[in-house]
């Protein structure tokens, strides 16, 4: 650290800047697009100088899409609400089911425990399109198609294995002696789970929860097939911007900005706790 020369510092700065520009440019460009009309977006050569407009956001929030062919109703805000509801509920359900299961798999080796854990992981092997067709059939028989319950259930295929396997690793990393010490001190196994295992695996649970949330949020194909317009999340809702009179790039851009915001905010918020928690967990008893 102390021996870094000025040259080394500037080179490092340059390299990091290049990486940041490479990854951030598309997002930056979309951010700019969201404040432009279709006309300025499509002009050649593209220009970074333009008169910003909020018309795209206004259209999304009011739900009235004005095109050259007339006014169209879009349910973007409802889609956004659906996304939030579906993702939050799915992750919450996955945590309630997955964390105790992960603890059981980590701490108790029973007959077939590895097989069950592996089966749960294997749900992530199959491409979603492969399971969709039979799933659509079953959902129709069960009356689950186009319901929130059905979607949240299917989302467990995405969230549950992720949470189970990540959190299990964190539980396994906790020294069993620490838990034994709490048991011997006179606490029940449930108190030990609540007061020792859960807080110590906290950062892992938060990380797994965040990842599961992002996966659930970005899911497209399950919701496209299994739900209709009023239950669909933003990922499917964005299709509405491909209209008969052209593609509404401005609205798509602002829709992306709006739909990225919750995940981004959540990640930034959780990051603090992730780092804090990870440094706490790094201490060997």
């Amino acid at each position: 650290m102390e021996t870094t020369s000025t040259l080394e510092k500037s080179l490092r700065f340059l390299a990091l800047s290049l990486v940041v520009i490479f990854f951030m440019f598309p997002i930056f460009w979309i951010f700019l697009m969201s404040f432009q009309t279709n006309e300025t977006i499509l002009q050649i050569p593209p220009s970074i100088v333009f008169t910003p407009t909020l018309s795209n956001y206004a259209a999304l929030i009011t739900g009235k899409l004005t095109t050259s062919a007339g006014t169209l109703d879009i349910a973007f805000m409802r889609n956004l609400g659906n996304s939030v509801f579906l993702s939050v509920t799915s992750v919450a359900l996955s945590l309630v089911l997955g964390v105790p299961a992960a603890y059981a798999f980590a701490r108790h080796k029973f007959r077939g425990s590895e097989d069950i854990a592996f089966t749960l992981l294997s749900f992530r092997f199959a491409p979603p399109l492969l399971v969709l067709l039979p799933l659509t059939q079953y959902f129709q028989w069960l009356g689950l198609s186009d319901t929130y319950v059905g979607l949240i259930w299917v989302y467990q295929l995405i969230c549950l294995p992720l949470i189970l396997w990540i959190v299990r690793g964190y539980f396994e990393d906790i020294s069993a002696d620490v838990e034994y010490a709490y048991r011997i001190a006179g606490h029940s196994w449930f108190a030990t789970f609540r007061k020792i295992a859960l807080p110590l695996a906290g950062p892992g649970i938060a990380a797994a929860g965040l990842l599961a949330f992002i996966f659930a949020w970005n899911n497209f194909v399950f919701a496209l097939v299994l739900a209709s317009a009023d239950k669909q999340p933003v990922t499917v809702g964005a299709l509405a911007f491909v209209t008969s009179s052209g593609i509404q790039y401005g609205q798509i851009a602002s829709a992306i900005v709006l739909s990225v915001t919750p995940t981004l905010a959540l990640a930034l918020y959780a990051q603090r706790y992730l780092v804090e928690g990870l440094s706490l967990g790094a201490v060997k008893g």
Binding site: D177, A181, I184, G186, S188
Partner: peptide, 16 residues
């Protein structure tokens, strides 16, 4: 938890 025992571990096993 019902044996009424106190125990100290080799690796201390403190609650971090």
């Amino acid at each position: 938890e019902h044996r009424g025992i106190g125990m100290a571990f080799q690796n201390f096993a403190l609650f971090p």
